[in-house]
Design a protein around this nucleic acid. Structure first.
Lengths: 205, 205
DNA sequence: TTATAAATTGAATGAATGTTCAATTAATTT
DNA sequence: AAATTAATTGAACATTCATTCAATTTATAA
């Protein structure tokens, strides 16, 4: 009896608006009041679902890290071909798809919180480790399938991630479109070279 | 006539306290009032020197980036020996010296501001570019002196920086001391290998 | 000693912050 | 229709915020 709960759906709505406002104006300039104003609801409703601003921010971090994970998702079409799967992942990471899916500014903004908030630090650490584990799995599968020849799988995976994080740290400040693309290309090729993989080769399965 | 100006010294004092508080509690939790309280002065005095909080933050960014540059300084003792100079730089970057000199949390916190503040973005971009130019200069000097054999100097320098930024992005979340040191070592060796340089060799000049 | 200029204080501002609590509205079940 | 439960509002809260302005203190030069 009684009214059915909209809790989870409503929480997600709120976080989405939080995300969009923080993306535009920065995390520190996005208050509960502003989120409520944008949604045309009362600020106290936000507090009703998230008890404190802190909890709301944790919700945002969860949301962001979930989005981040999506970049590493392999499409169903490639799930059986380990080589194609790996190529797809590398392709996604070093492509404009990244920027479409994801806002780097918020990612770094929340990352900075990790230095003063143990919970955020754990969330980020677990994400980075899980992504490393995932890539290790893909590489090992490729090795078993005989399509990849690398020695130390863990090191190779770590090198890829260091390349990714280092690359985007600089790329995020590059405003010139052409330079951005050229660099992105270069970094992607470096990733493939770390894996001893070569470009294209979508000709023969 | 009149009193002599303490402006610059006082501004630096204020920024130093700003830095120390923001390092401890985070940028967003550090207000003008708190800085003033810590210094036992009136908040209006801070506004007197920096007209707005925005300007105060720019001052902090300047301060942080200046500190960051120090890591890349070459000691006088090595200024004539290009190979030693390069080794010293790489040594400093991948050492505990980093953490002693510098707080990564604030560096990332300010970096995140770059996504919404053109001035901060420019400051960061110029810093990263000047450091790249500096490293390129060192590498070229080494090549001229015949102590280094690399092809594309610019790419090599960029690879070093990508390694640095990517390495510390993960390292900053590693709390285990031993793992931290092992990784740091590994990354340093990778940097040397990118440069085709080998470790130690402090035996013969 | 007096004029001067900068350092510093102190009080006050309005706006925005996160959060509270009670009251009301709306949906769902019995 | 009545009971129940959740959604939502609205008003109020104390706090903190950045910033203002006038007044005062302090150091220096004439």
């Amino acid at each position: 009896m009684g009214r059915k709960s909209l809790k989870e759906a409503r929480k997600k709505e709120i976080i989405k608006v939080f995300y969009s406002l923080a993306k535009k104006n920065g995390l520190e300039n996005t208050s509960i009041a502003k989120i409520a104003a944008k949604m045309e609801i009362n600020p106290s409703l936000i507090i009703h679902y998230f008890q404190t601003r802190e909890d709301l921010v944790y919700g945002l971090v969860d949301y962001i890290l979930d989005k981040y994970k999506l970049i590493y998702k392999v499409s169903a079409a490639h799930s059986k071909d380990s080589r194609k799967a790996l190529l797809e992942i590398i392709g996604n990471i070093f492509s404009k798809k990244w920027n479409a899916l994801f806002d780097d500014g918020l990612f770094y903004g929340c990352y900075a919180m990790a230095f003063h908030d143990a919970k955020v630090r754990d969330l980020y650490k677990k994400l980075l480790d899980s992504l490393r584990a995932m890539l290790i799995g893909h590489i090992e599968q490729c090795r078993e399938d005989g399509v990849l020849d690398v020695e130390d799988v863990e090191t190779v995976a770590d090198n890829i991630f260091v390349l990714i994080d280092g690359a985007y740290f600089y790329l995020s400040l590059v405003s010139d479109k052409e330079e951005y693309e050229q660099r992105l290309n270069k970094y992607r090729q470096q990733a493939l070279s770390i894996l001893h993989l070569k470009e294209l080769s979508e000709v023969s399965g």
